[in-house]
């Protein structure tokens, strides 16, 4: 810290911090690029936000599929059976324990049972979560309704009008808006009908043109045939 000149009797914080920053910038250049200075992130989280982002996740582990038999014993057995494939049923009967297939079947059944348990638990969890969300949605709707009522009260208080008068006024405006919407709907409907008629007429005219073209071609051919007969 030899390059720091500090007046201890009258600390100049601005100068001291400028010196610290300058040294930091120099060291950053010497030892790493300035981009590697690990700037602190902008504060982006409000105080008191210690709530989970989503529902509690379903954390039960998915059951592991059971090994046929643990370790090398199973591998050796598989190799042995592969080598003696033609005599495998006989070998299995003579050499291997007679209950092996039953044990394996039981193990698989156990695995199936655990999977069923797992999916049952998961379904129940999903059901609960859906139920919670539905309740939250219902409460949101209720809150929305309450907020609107409060807003109405506030406006009534500010304007000095009675809530009934405001309510009647709002209802009148809403009815007028509803009538306008109905009119617009009828207009849109009529426009669609007229457009459909026009389209049908357009198609008819197109067909007529096609028929006339055909007639024209036929007449042309007839003209040429008559001319031929005439000149023969």
């Amino acid at each position: 810290m030899d390059d720091f000149s500090i007046d201890y009797d009258n600390l100049d914080m601005a100068a001291l911090m400028a010196a610290v920053k300058e040294r930091a910038a120099r060291r950053a250049e010497d030892e790493g690029s300035p981009e590697e200075t690990f700037p602190l992130p902008e504060p982006d989280r409000p105080q008191d936000s210690g709530f989970p982002a989503d529902d509690e996740p379903f954390l039960a582990p998915y059951p592991d599929f059971p090994d046929d038999e643990p370790g090398g014993k199973s591998r050796i057995k598989r190799i042995l059976l592969k080598l003696m494939r033609p005599f495998a049923p006989l070998m299995k009967l003579i050499i291997l324990p007679i209950n092996e297939d039953i044990v394996r079947a039981v193990r698989h059944l156990d695995y199936v049972n655990r999977r069923v348990d797992y999916f049952a638990a998961k379904s129940e969890h999903e059901l609960r979560r859906t139920d919670r969300r539905f309740s939250a949605f219902q409460e949101d709707l209720q809150r929305e309704k309450d907020a609107l009522a409060r807003e109405l009260e506030r406006v009534a208080k500010e304007t000095g009008a009675s809530i009934d008068a405001l309510d009647a006024f709002m209802r009148g405006r809403m009815n007028a808006a509803a009538d306008n919407v109905k009119l617009l709907h009828t207009l849109a409907h009529n426009t669609v009908v007229e457009l459909t008629k026009l389209k049908i007429e357009h198609e008819t005219l197109k067909n007529k043109i096609r028929v006339m073209e055909k007639d024209f071609e036929t007449l042309g051919r007839r003209e040429r045939a008559l001319e031929k007969k005439v000149f023969e």
């Binding site: 810290m1 600390l11 610290v20 920053k21 060291r27 700037p39």
Partner: peptide, 27 residues
């Protein structure tokens, strides 16, 4: 007190305060 915005400033400020007993005393 000193303050820092990134690692390098943290290091320099900590170095300075750690090494200079008189500065610590005055502060």
């Amino acid at each position: 007190g000193l303050f820092y915005e990134n690692y390098w400033e943290f290091r320099e400020a900590l170095d300075l305060l750690d090494a200079d007993a008189r500065l610590r005393e005055v502060m």
